[in-house]
Design a protein around this nucleic acid. Structure first.
Lengths: 325, 325
DNA sequence: TTGTAAGCGTTATCAG
DNA sequence: CTGATAACGCTTACAA
């Protein structure tokens, strides 16, 4: 693979000159410029970004750590992050932690060694201290860490309120909330707070169940929801913390012969694309994934440029009513 | 950020020695080894992989170019590719081409400049020549390019046969096939060949419609399928080329009051996770995404090591019968 | 068992 | 307008 020296030699100029035409810096005569470009073409020369990175101390890489890209929410997030990263001249290194602390830690180490320009953290299995010592820009999705690291989330408390109120307003008598593991220190837990507070305040029968850490074990959902309906056959409203879980609730509810939404109302969360093509389509709380992704990249960039930025970034959610309520 | 020089100085040894303990090469006394490790800890030293890459001419990065990670099929593929890449010591650079040739070309250029160790191509909007000139290992998913580049696909023809035969065997009288744009030179087009050949042979009424290039415009699916049923109300079997499209067919069929599977039978493709949690769950042709991903990483590795490898890698598909037939 | 020095492919500085 | 040369942080002959 041709280097800048090969080009310089063949073009009969110095490497400095080649570098200049490459970066369009300083004065160069049109003749040499043309000559150099010609030789580059001829040698099929591609500047080595690794060498550039070494010198500039900038890799133009953003690390994205999430639990699992094959989960629709994170798939859409990753897609959007990549889009905005690319638009800002960054590449994206994809890391799936699978919510294993060891893997998450290893990925963070790897990113340090690779001198990424910043990390977007969407997986949170470690302690606060593990993150605070990081030597470069971080942005956190859905978790508040320490005093200085900026975080992005949607308005989880409000989302919980909207969902719960909708179920109550529609006349539900006993509502269940299915959330993720509350042991993880996530802002998403505010949804649960909102649910319990609002349900309690309105004096409605309610209960909350947690999925375990292995978010990607789908059978877990089935068993859990089946048990829920078995133990509480009178449940007529479910607020699930993701559209996937909601889809399982729909499926199992139907299997048990419950009419939706007449006998069982279900509200999901996220508004991933699937929510609208499911049958019945899901009522859900929309998170602005696109805006969150755009902001994440922007916050990395701002930290790199030492520009001012907001530490707390809470984006609005929206209730999307569809068939399941 | 500490460099190897800082460590050497503080430990009172040469950089060579530090490098040796780092890479565990050559003889070093236990005393200095301990000393050096201590200083590394103290200085919070992380070896700079960029410098290493420059020297070794190996980045340990695999580029993954796909249309869109938020599509379930590619999301699962990306997830698995990342898993196996990590296990083989590679990082993954994620690129969404959105099926725009300009973007795909730009990504390929970017990868050349960044000296990735190999590329897994799951997006195919360019001409064969654009790929053949690439200076490093490539693996292609679902497309055959030139004579030398290895490719991976599942047995598309067989998948088409299985789906079509199932519809016929179940007693369908008029079947429709919804495929992607046939202008793209994909092995997935074999599904269509199989459909048409088998339907023709058995003398059944049949027709094929193509979606346009913008695979990610979901409204397109709705309109297209609605029109299909309007123009051919007697269709009682649909073979869709993805589970997403199949899900839309289910949704619209239901809206039109057709009972599934009694009056309308539907077969999808891929067996993404959603296929099993949809309601009704989808009958589909399973592609072995995990195996395909593992093989993709392995083929990159083998090319790097100049080990022998198969050029043609066609993995078996499987019919998964669920509720929609 | 340890150290010196060259080189990986660029860019920046300084001098013509 | 152009060119030498010294970095960037690391590994690897070659020497000691």
């Amino acid at each position: 693979m041709a280097t800048i020296h090969d080009v310089a030699e063949k073009a009969g100029v110095s490497v400095t000159t080649v570098s200049r035409v490459l970066n369009n810096r300083g004065y160069i005569s049109d003749a040499t410029r043309r000559k150099v470009f010609g030789v580059m073409e001829e040698l099929n020369y591609h500047p080595n970004e690794i060498a550039r990175s070494l010198l500039r101390k900038q890799s133009n890489i953003i690390g994205l750590i999430i639990p699992n890209v094959s989960h629709p929410f994170f798939g859409e997030l990753a897609n959007d992050v990549e889009f905005f990263a690319h638009r800002n001249g960054f590449k994206v290194l994809l890391c799936n932690s699978r919510l294993e602390p060891a893997k998450e830690r290893e990925y963070i180490e790897m990113m340090k060694r690779n001198r990424v320009d910043g990390i977007i953290m969407g997986s949170h299995t470690l302690e606060v201290g593990d993150y605070e010592s990081l030597p470069y820009p971080i942005v956190t999705i859905d978790r508040r860490i320490g005093e200085s690291i900026p975080y992005i989330s949607s308005d989880n408390y409000r989302g919980g309120e909207l969902a719960t109120r909708l179920l109550i307003d529609k006349g539900c008598r006993k509502i269940a909330h299915i959330c993720g593991s509350l042991e993880l220190d996530l802002l998403a837990n505010l949804r649960t707070d909102a649910f319990e507070s609002m349900a309690t305040r309105s004096g409605i029968h309610h209960l909350t169940i947690q999925t375990d850490m292995d978010v990607f074990n789908q059978e877990q959902y089935e068993d859990m929801i089946r048990r829920l309906f078995r133990e509480h056959p009178d449940i007529d409203g479910v607020f699930a913390t993701s559209d996937i879980i909601a889809a399982f609730a729909v499926k199992i509810g139907r299997t048990l012969g419950k009419r939706i939404p007449e006998e069982l109302r279900i509200v999901g969360y996220d508004d991933v694309k699937a929510a609208s093509w499911l049958q019945p389509s899901l009522t859900t709380i929309r998170q602005p994934i696109r805006e969150m992704s755009e902001l994440a990249v922007e916050l990395i960039r701002k930290q790199m440029e030492e520009a001012p930025y907001e530490r707390e970034n809470i984006l609005p959610v929206e209730l999307i009513e569809r068939d399941t309520t």
